[in-house]
Design a protein around this nucleic acid. Structure first.
Lengths: 224, 224
DNA sequence: TTCTTTTTGATAGTAACACTATCATTTTTA
DNA sequence: TAAAAATGATAGTGTTACTATCAAAAAGAA
């Protein structure tokens, strides 16, 4: 599957395409490790430059800001996830089973490659849980949305909504349910791990398993 | 109802209680206006100080950081919301109607006072939509959670979960559903306004009305 | 190979941010 | 009216988020 992973990401996300050089790829790879380690707020280009033994200047030649870099990473993730969904769904003809598979993929409750293109996928998923909403919860969301930087997320959401409509063509909220399922998958994992009293997970571990069960219960009773 | 609004907020949120002085109250009041206007990222104590004609020093004597100030404001909001819920639910004995009322209150689709204690409630609600997740999506969430700064949100969530259990005592996920409903109420309003293709709202306005209808559909089919 | 272009590095600089410290002044309260 | 508390004024520190400039290195073309 590895060989498939080559997306053309939106031009507005970078100044120089990081896929096309070693240093560019290491910027993306190590920013995943560093954001995972210290969180997006404390993450700076200065720290990243020290980490990969280059300079701030060079990083700024690839990304105009750390916010754009975050959106880049997340876009890559959404593209990747949609690809995994489509790949896995080929084998399945039953719509309900399709959605079950999607929910597993979205909660990241599956044992695929730990590394893809040198990106640590566990860490990337943790970043998605903790930082993804920061990509759009900004004052200039409308401006950057015009640059189509959120289209990978929209595309994934649209794909999921179609599966929902396969199950029940009369369902009124396929897209809202799709976005709710994606976001709830992350949010409830975060709550289960850090604010467990906002969930019903008795277990102090097995966050993904709990969330997956919850999402299935949610999705299938709503769509009916 | 005005006279009821007096909460004792968690000591850890402030250095000096802002409720006890004019300058403290204006810090809270004007931070709502300023965060609403420029967003939490661009909001600084320096700008706030200029805005209310005081000094950074003075603001730092009330709040140790802008992040704590955000949690303070949000805690106040959660307390307020739980109070409104309890007040409104007195009149209602049917559990399903109770939940309907809660969903209206949580989406803020009701015409209560525009100002309470000088706080602009419309703006406060917009802040909750755009900024509330930033209060907990931080690396030191576990540390600050130990200071119990998130208890107002937990309390509201717990309250809602009890109403859910009234409707169906056998429902397995009352707390997760409660937190999902609260968070989805905000998230879908944001999506409807800024990333509408993540929702099914055809209308370019009436975000609250759309979200409320969606939440009702969601909640009652899940609880069954 | 040499020449040219592209990429990177090194260094410097700016305005703003997130604080902390000190001390004088004003306001409140006992 | 004296003591205590709150505020203001000013300064300073280390960091962040960039931008600018110019030299050095690497890559590609002739």
């Amino acid at each position: 599957m590895e060989f498939l992973i080559q997306f053309k990401l939106n031009d507005h996300l970078y100044l120089r395409d990081p896929e096309l050089s070693d240093i560019g790829r290491s910027i993306v790879r190590e920013s995943i490790n560093l954001i995972y380690e210290i969180g997006f707020e404390k993450f700076t280009f200065r720290k990243l430059a020290l980490h990969i033994k280059t300079t701030e200047t060079t990083i700024y030649r690839y990304f105009s800001s750390k916010h754009k870099l975050l959106i880049y990473i997340l876009s890559w993730y959404w593209n990747y996830l949609e690809l995994v969904c489509k790949f896995q769904l080929q084998r399945e003809s039953d719509s309900k089973n399709k959605l079950k598979l999607i929910l597993e993929i979205v909660t990241y409750n599956y044992p695929y490659g730990l590394e893809i293109k040198g990106y640590n996928m566990q860490r990337l998923h943790e970043i998605v849980i903790s930082e993804s909403s920061k990509s759009y919860l900004v004052k200039d969301v409308d401006d950057i949305n015009e640059e189509l930087v959120f289209s990978p997320l929209k595309s994934l959401c649209s794909f999921i909504s179609e599966v929902i409509l396969e199950i029940n063509p009369k369902f009124d909220y396929p897209k809202s349910l799709a976005s709710t399922l994606i976001e709830t998958a992350h949010q409830q994992q975060f709550f289960s791990a850090h604010l467990p009293s906002l969930t019903d997970n008795k277990n102090k571990e097995l966050h993904k398993e709990y969330v997956l069960a919850y999402l299935n219960s949610l999705a299938f009773s709503v769509i009916k």
